[in-house]
């Protein structure tokens, strides 16, 4: 990693990166994005296995996808929770994701867009710092 030596550097870096991260939000790529909540609660409920499952299986099933970890989404009661974003669509959060449901999510939601049980309606607003 190279140092960020000035505020201009930082801004440049951010603009570059927003392309990358933004793609997960702004539909600039055709990949499926799966985020697994990997905080203590999630991991304790098996999120690690779920994440491995998605990484492996999406590749094995030839689905262009990016699987990343993230922090706590707040739905501790429904761990493990994951967020799946299909290209061009709003992200959907699934709770109680065990391997069986993970498989269902790939087979139904990811492949066909058909929703499966366990959706958690997102009930919060997040601020945007880009002002």
């Amino acid at each position: 990693m190279s140092k960020i030596n000035s505020i201009a550097d930082l801004k440049k870096k951010r603009d570059e990166l927003q392309g990358g991260l933004g793609s997960r939000v702004n539909d600039t790529s055709n990949a499926v994005h799966v985020k697994v909540a990997m905080a203590t609660c999630g991991i304790a409920s098996g999120a690690k296995n779920v994440m491995e499952f998605f990484s492996e299986q999406l590749e094995r099933r030839n689905i262009a996808a990016v699987v990343t970890q993230t922090g706590c989404m707040g739905y501790c009661y429904a761990e493990p929770t994951i967020e799946v974003k299909l290209p061009g669509q709003d992200p959907v959060v699934f709770g109680f994701v065990d391997l069986k449901r993970a498989d269902q999510i790939i087979e139904k939601y990811v492949k066909t867009g058909e929703l499966v049980d366990g959706i958690i309606p997102v009930n919060y607003q997040t601020i945007d710092l880009n002002v």
Binding site: L21, K35, A37, T68, Q69, T70, G71, C72, M73, G74, E83, N123, Y124, Q125, T126, I127, L129
Partner: peptide, 13 residues
């Protein structure tokens, strides 16, 4: 809910 403190939790790696 309004997420200020938790703005990035569950969003970024």
């Amino acid at each position: 809910q309004l997420r200020i403190v938790l703005r990035n939790c569950g969003f970024i790696n």
